[in-house]
Design a protein around this nucleic acid. Structure first.
Lengths: 148, 148
DNA sequence: CCATTCCGTCAGAGAATCTGACCATCGTCA
DNA sequence: TGACGATGGTCAGATTCTCTGACGGAATGG
């Protein structure tokens, strides 16, 4: 596992930095905008709540955590007024986690930061290389996302 | 932050899956090989220990955690016989974390799995696309790794 | 109609992470 | 040569994150 030195790094490890960089930028921007009570793990869940709402089990799958962890994090987001839980009209067992009140404000900040970061990265890589990167990562997801 | 639906996903998020996929494969392989007491976070530190040893502060920077967290994880790895701490001959304050005993065995398993995973990904993407992905991620690291 | 699966919560335990403080050492500068 | 700021690492405590197992209710398929 120790191959950090001169040897070239594996692709999975190389993916670590952009992923973390975006998360850090997002959290920093949210703190700067006054939303200083969202943690990294909560953000990772909140980032996967789609328009209309998303089920807890889906959030857990996409964030690669257990239902218990996702539930706990949604509890906290709900308590802080970012999300709400509503019944899923298509399945009485299920509930949809939706962005609420403050969460909608957060979405706007997050989208702006994501756009900024992606513009920076595109400027650094070039349009073509960025398109190729995206295509490769999307194709890679076909075999790396266990829930797709 | 909630843009998971039909909208295309940002690059940072797309990087999440390969990174996690590799970590999961590594841990599963280690468990299968009998090293079932290494946690994900410990693995993330151990993966950055270079030949000759690496300082705690460097491990913390690369793994994007605090010195305290890195120290705690190294404590555990040391206690389990995977690493050892030795004085850094160039700085009396510093110590080098080196792979020890069981850790060297773990390295061999890890390298094999990393090679397997990368071969699978290359087979899925194609040689050229993989080379482009690597080049793009390495260039991206120039602006996403805060400690380089 | 029944067995199986799914959905989400509950309880508890352990892992991971952080801040602030502290001490020893190093490098720089006057 | 000594002072000072920075660095390296540890200590203590607190909080967050994560997991397993269990459970009850709802949905699905045979």
């Amino acid at each position: 596992m120790a191959d950090q030195a001169a040897e070239r790094q594996n692709l999975g490890l190389l993916c670590f930095y952009p992923h973390r960089a975006l998360e850090s930028r997002l959290l920093a921007a949210l703190v700067a905008a006054g939303y200083d009570d969202i943690t990294t793990a909560q953000g990772r869940i909140a980032a996967r709540i789609g328009p209309g709402g998303t089920r807890l089990t889906a959030l857990a799958e996409q964030a690669l955590v257990t239902k218990q962890t996702a539930g706990h994090l949604v509890d906290q987001l709900e308590k802080a007024g970012y999300v709400r839980r509503v019944p899923d009209p298509t399945d009485a067992r299920a509930r949809l986690v939706q962005m609420a009140g403050r969460g909608l404000e957060v979405v706007a900040v997050a989208r702006r930061v994501e756009a900024e970061v992606e513009a920076e990265w595109t400027a650094h890589l070039g349009e073509e290389a960025t398109a190729q990167l995206r295509a490769a990562l999307e194709r890679l997801r076909e075999i790396t996302d266990p829930y797709r």
